[in-house]
Amino acid sequence: MPHPDALSEQADRRAPIAEDMRFQRRSWLIERVCWTLWLVVVVATLTGLFSHGPLSGSVATAANGLSVGYERFQRETRLVHFTVTVPAPNGNEVAVRLNRAFGEAYNIETVEPQPIRASAGRDTIELAFAPASGQGLVAWIGARPRRWGLFELAVAVAGEAPATFRVLIYP
């Protein structure tokens, strides 16, 4: 049973101010709901729902063994890295093709190792690498999202099936 004083405290006073305890209680309820939501936001951020964390990191693969490490959730203007791995490539040169969505969504800022050739066509960006003979290629691409939205990206070795994946870029 509530304390008698608690009951009278919920009653409106008229002087020296006109109160509205019903409105006040409703405000408190709304505030507390919002605080709970904020706690959920902080926890979600720590798990990577808003970029960089366990929920966000992922790997996309293609049939030929090509794999791309990426973040599923990204933020506009926040630098992200793609790790492209091509095991045991054929020949001396590996041409990695990024689809049109890459050009639309990102400014590519760094590529390690330095490609021996970079070109951009209407629908693709091509980066050519010369890995050490017999060894696989691991390339890191640092890109800065310049638009927000949902994008379907594709990375392929020239002439072969791509690894496709989706990223959500928050504003």
Binding site: D5, A6, E9, R13, E19, F23, Q24
Partner: peptide
């Protein structure tokens, strides 16, 4: 009230309204 909130008495004639 929605934009600014409303005032509320918290001490009344020397008695703190603890709730």
């Amino acid at each position: 009230p929605w934009l600014n909130g409303i005032p509320m008495i918290i001490v009344e004639r020397g008695r703190a309204l603890r709730w």
